[in-house]
């Protein structure tokens, strides 16, 4: 590798670090207040427009929700300043067991953790 190229790559890398630092320091992320019933409903309409969930459970810290539509579970959880939506069989969700107020959901591409008020699962909203 020639010197000019190394300088260019080094400079680019320094630029990346600088911009990430500025984004972390000054960047304004979207507001993601804890979900309440209304916000949860609105989020479900946007992310699952073809579904009509029968019941919705909101995590104790408001950072996610699990909705039930018959045999299907609709899962939404916060990632950064947005939400990730996934669906999976309700039986999978129902079989989970929380511990120490945390419910770990195994998705194919992530392991989101939901805060539960007590270790009773499934909650009565979804049972």
């Amino acid at each position: 590798m020639d010197k000019a190229l190394l300088i260019q790559l080094g400079g680019s890398l320094a630029g990346v670090v600088l911009l990430v630092a500025i984004a972390a320091w000054f960047g304004v992320a979207r507001a993601t207040p804890p979900l309440d019933a209304e916000a949860a409903r609105a989020l479900l309409v946007v992310e699952f427009p073809d579904h009509r969930p029968d019941a919705v459970w909101i995590a104790a810290d408001g950072a996610g929700l699990i909705a039930r539509e018959g045999a299907l579970a609709l899962v939404l959880y916060r990632r950064g300043d947005g939400y990730v939506a996934r669906d999976l069989p309700w039986s999978t969700i129902a079989a989970l067991r929380p511990s120490n107020g945390r419910l770990l959901v195994r998705l194919s591409d992530a392991r989101p953790v939901f805060a539960v008020a007590d270790d009773v699962w499934p909650p009565r909203e979804l049972a």
Binding site: L9, S12, L13, G15, V16, L19, V20, A23, A24, F26, G27, V28, A29, R30, G80, D81, G82
Partner: peptide, 20 residues
Amino acid sequence: ANYEARDAAVSLTMGFGSTV
């Protein structure tokens, strides 16, 4: 102009990696 630091980090690192 919304910025999330981790999102921006992925974008910028992708740009650097693309050069390589």
